[in-house]
């Protein structure tokens, strides 16, 4: 039996530009994943609770303004809630010099504008598979 990847595509913080999030969510759906999609402006505790209840493997944060600056706080909160194994990726406009800090904080990957959807889907699929394998070691 297959364990379909479960992915959350969301926006935290204050910005509302969600074209990228929508396009990526639809692409991951078409790649056979189960995608929980939210409108923008989610707060961190809500995202953590959602990720746990929905048994999310990968969280994709879309950031066009500067909301990526609070992604480290999200990762902290996930860890504190016992969901530190969720892979967090960020897509959108992130200045180069702010990427290392995100990676340092535990972000699995940063995708910039122009990243092909297929590459994003491949990355998400394999990251999800790793999370699934540790959560359900003897599922298959």
């Amino acid at each position: 039996m297959e364990l379909r990847p479960r992915v959350l595509v969301t926006k935290i913080g204050l910005d509302g530009h969600d074209r990228g999030a929508r396009v990526v969510a639809a692409c991951l759906r078409d790649a056979g994943m189960e995608v929980v999609y939210t409108p923008p402006w989610q707060d961190i505790p809500a995202v953590v609770k959602l990720a746990i209840e929905e048994d999310i493997d990968v969280i994709g944060i879309s950031s066009l303004a500067t909301d990526h600056l609070i992604v480290p706080a999200l990762i902290e909160a996930l860890r504190a809630a016992g969901a530190g194994d969720v892979a967090v990726i960020v897509g959108g406009i992130v200045p180069d010099e702010e990427v290392p800090a995100l990676i340092e904080a535990g972000v699995a990957q940063v995708f910039h504008p122009g990243a092909p959807l297929a590459r994003i889907a491949d990355f998400v699929r394999s990251a999800a598979a790793r999370v699934r394998a540790t959560r359900f070691p003897d599922a298959r």
Binding site: R4, A25, R29, A31, G32, M33, V35, V36, T38, L50
Partner: peptide, 9 residues
Amino acid sequence: SGGALLGDR
């Protein structure tokens, strides 16, 4: 694709 968008919650 078998994929799904789960947006209701």
